[in-house]
Design a protein around this nucleic acid. Structure first.
Length: 437
RNA sequence: GGAGCCGUAGCCAAGCGGUAAGGCAUAGGUCUGCAACACCUUGAUCGCCGGUUCAAAUCCGGCCGGCUCCUCCA
């Protein structure tokens, strides 16, 4: 199995840290606003990835966090005169709702920053005592020059970064790219620490949570492409400083979603939420739109793309209904199988685009086999189809066909054969109402 | 200024050294009591120019055109 590792910029053979086990962590959202479709892209992709690893027999532990402390949350809390927790709770619910509406399996761990404050303080203390962090003013900073190879993930040399041109230089820092570990604050939620009253910076939480939950190095660390620098770079730096190892064996990043060719942003006003999309499109359609192209490439969402996915979704649904009916009417038994072609595509850095092409090919063959009454072929293809849709996380209401259903079906056929079309249409309507055809 | 990505038929998209998968749309046809579904047929030499090679969409160089990151960001 090959996975593209952002750390080396290469396609690498996947080797788990412990055979048969897999620890994976994906950066979750900061819960300071309504989540949009872009937040769902990594969620849907990594959900598919985890489903696949489990199918392959790995015992997967999957964690994804909520950043429930940050300046914007504090700001919102002050403005609305509610607590930070109330702000975070509201948007956590919103996000979790979106996840389940897109059929994402709940993660095994959903850590929050506020639940790890003690561990974060201990961790920062460790960095201070080992001279990787320093206090200046009221804040604590990480000293990027205290480790070798800062910039190894993003391939950045700090002297080339466009620092002063973009934001004001903080004179408290030894190096402009030193980052805040602990921020002293005079407003909003704060905690007491040996180095002062304040709140943790953004980059420390993930490192601390990962070490606590997984007890050290993980296999895969994922997130959006925008997190490569500085967030993931800084996670790597802290782990290096504290424990002298790499945080993760494989770093995976998904491309961003664009809307009608434009970057989604508040200023353009083209941010679209899952709820809004669900007014017009089904969860399957949205997942298909996301999985139709490669996860690392940017994904452009447009009406054309969604309509096309909708057509694919209907094709799948139609094939499932017909096959399910055929199997039940003929009292056949479906067996779960593994499929080599499918695995070959998934093993190639999760080429879901090829998987969907293969799905469509399978469906075409199902339709041909149904016409030819080729029972063996139908059973085999049906198994492949259901395997793929399960791992892509698509859901279809596969009806249990009852004896009554079968009876109506037989009556329909009998009426058609005797050219009694009035009654045939009645039975057809009943079958449609029962969601069978 | 630095790091990196992308440019394949009307649209979406795979392929990443051996001679262009697939889907949507279009057009024509088949099946069919009527519908629906389905099936068959239907199109590109891969942004431009040069180089390497027996062989390039695939490697190298230049150019043009989009884009991302370097500040919070999935």
């Amino acid at each position: 199995m090959k996975i593209y590792n952002t750390y080396t910029n290469k396609l690498e053979t996947f080797i788990p840290n412990n055979e048969g086990k897999l620890n994976i962590y994906v950066c979750g959202p900061t819960v300071n606003k309504k989540t949009h479709i872009g937040h769902m892209y990594p969620a849907v992709f990594f959900d598919t990835l985890v489903r696949y690893f489990r199918y392959k027999g790995y015992q997967v532990t999957y964690a994804s966090n909520f950043t429930d402390v940050d300046d914007k949350i504090i700001q919102t809390a002050i403005e609305q005169n509610i607590t930070e927790k109330e702000v975070a709770d509201k948007y956590e619910k919103y996000y979790l709702n979106d996840l389940s509406s897109l059929n994402c399996i709940p993660v095994d761990y959903r850590p929050r920053v506020t639940e790890y404050i003690d561990e974060i303080i201990d961790f920062i203390n460790l960095l201070i005592t080992t001279n990787h962090a320093y206090k200046n003013g009221d804040d604590v900073y990480f000293d990027i020059n205290s480790i070798d190879n800062y910039g190894s993930l993003s391939n950045q040399k700090t002297e080339n970064l466009d620092y002063g041109n973009r934001i004001e230089i903080d004179t408290n820092k030894k190096n402009p790219y030193d980052f805040v570990l602990w921020k002293s604050t005079d407003q909003g939620i704060k905690w007491q620490a040996p180095f002062g009253e304040g709140r943790p910076g953004w980059h420390t939480e993930c490192v601390v949570m990962i070490n606590k939950i997984f007890n050290g190095k993980i296999d895969i660390h994922g997130g959006g492409i925008d997190l490569v620098f500085p967030h993931h770079e800084n996670e790597i730096a802290q782990q290096q400083a504290a424990y002298n190892n790499n945080l993760a064996s494989y770093w995976m990043h998904n491309g961003h979603i664009k809307l009608d060719g434009e970057k989604m942003s508040k200023s353009i006003g083209n941010v679209i939420t899952v709820k809004e999309l669900l007014n017009t499109y089904t969860p399957n359609t949205i997942r298909l739109s996301m999985l139709k192209n490669h996860y690392r490439a940017p994904l452009n969402i447009s009406a054309d793309v969604l309509e096309e996915s909708k057509t694919i979704d209907n094709k799948i649904l139609s094939a499932i209904k017909q096959t399910n009916l055929y199997i039940n009417v003929n009292n056949l038994t479906v067996i779960n199988i593994k499929d080599k072609t499918f695995e070959e595509y998934m093993d190639d850095d999760f080429n879901t685009s090829l998987v969907i092409a293969y799905l469509l090919d399978t469906i075409k063959n199902i339709n041909i086999s149904l016409r030819n009454n080729n029972t063996n072929e139908i059973l085999k293809l049906y198994s492949i189809m259901t395997l793929i849709i399960n791992i892509l996380g698509l859901t279809y209401d596969i009806k249990q066909i009852t004896n009554e259903d079968k009876e109506i079906y037989n009556l329909w056929n009998t009426c058609k054969a005797s050219k009694d079309y009035t009654n045939a249409d009645i039975y057809r309507k009943q079958l449609e109402e029962r969601n069978i055809i």
